[in-house]
Design a protein around this nucleic acid. Structure first.
Lengths: 208, 208
DNA sequence: GTCTATACCTAGATAGAC
DNA sequence: GTCTATCTAGGTATAGAC
């Protein structure tokens, strides 16, 4: 009929969510390499084609898994509040530098608890170098958000202390690089004290 | 015969080298994703099976390519001399901190010129998280070498200036993370000023 | 709109001939 | 030392069942 507007896609949306959640689990357990579309399909009780009904390709699926992880992260870490941080940077309110620093270190630690996802993140980031890759935009935007957030934090610190040790934009880039690099190290040597290194970095950049 | 030791493997060794050299070129041009064993085989005038006669798997081949790149790097960068740096750190001779810093930045810049290899490096590093991966040992050893080298550099700086701003071991780890992270960023945004960021880092850690 | 079955294609790996 | 042939696994496109 023409009036085919009774959209029964509530179920579809739910299924899509379920696929993402399960994929998150499977990837965390087995790593990206060993996660086929079939493995995800099995976990969710579908055929591979059934899964690809919701995502145009495996790469896009993984990209969405990453988005999902970002959501989960922001709820899992106690006291983490990217949103609030973002707002504060836009408005005139002063930013709590110590709190931002603490949140960042906590986020680092929580990441290292799930090596499978760390691997997904790093590998996809490398693959997303290609502008055609579905995750390319995701990573660029994520990086920009991260840097603008922490550039604001560093700028606040400079105001508080009346000096500029390191340019806030540069410091934000350094922090981003440090975080990504530490995660790479943690993949190879799970014992790395990421929080300790990150703390030392803040000390060095902010001045003791 | 027992004395079957007349090894006609001079040719084999040469061919193996040729495969590595060609693979280096192919990967640099097309990126890891688009480099199949067949592509390398074509470049070197063999069949895929012919190539895999020399390497037990594609992963192992790529690992060797990375090793090869490390060799090439140390010759390509003007004035770079890891060997000398390593020796100096072992002996009692003082290390030229400024020179080490300069070499490091130059190496960073030269790396960013070849995104294909950058990607190979980063992706393989992520995959090598698995202890079973052929590149696992390579990356761990490489990281340890890097850190011991630069820990010595930072220690020397501390001696020269009679103070300890950051623990040398910690600083070395930070530098390694920064380098890896910057390369990741450079993959997504080719315009990143890696050398500038790295320089700012040295300024912050060494003290102006 | 949701999903299965099927078929197809690429690619890494292996066996055995030369 | 190298090739041909073959096996297997996995991603993707299509047709059509429900």
């Amino acid at each position: 009929m023409e009036s085919s507007r009774r959209g029964p896609y509530a179920k579809g949306v739910a299924k899509r969510e379920e696929i993402l959640t399960q994929a998150l689990t499977v990837v965390a357990e087995r790593g990206v390499q060993d996660t086929s579309v079939k493995a995800i399909a099995d976990a969710v009780g579908l055929s591979p084609a059934g899964v690809l009904h919701y995502f145009s390709s495996k790469e896009e699926l993984f990209t969405e898994v990453l988005r999902k992880r970002d959501e989960v992260d922001s709820q899992r870490v106690a006291g983490l509040d990217w949103g609030g941080l973002g707002e504060a940077s836009g408005s005139g309110e002063p930013i709590d530098v110590a709190s931002a620093r603490k949140q960042f270190v906590e986020l680092l630690e929580s990441n290292s608890d799930v090596p499978g996802l760390l691997r997904l993140f790093t590998q996809l980031a490398a693959e997303a170098a290609d502008p055609e890759h579905p995750a390319h935009g995701f990573f660029r935007e994520r990086g920009e958000l991260f840097r603008s957030l922490f550039a604001a934090v560093f700028a606040q610190h400079n105001r508080d202390h009346g000096r500029t040790r390191v340019d806030p934009e540069v410091a934000a880039r350094m922090l981003q690089a440090l975080a990504d690099g530490l995660q790479l190290q943690a993949l190879l040597e799970p014992d790395v004290d990421m929080a300790g290194i990150a703390d030392a970095f803040f000390d060095a950049v902010l001045g003791d």
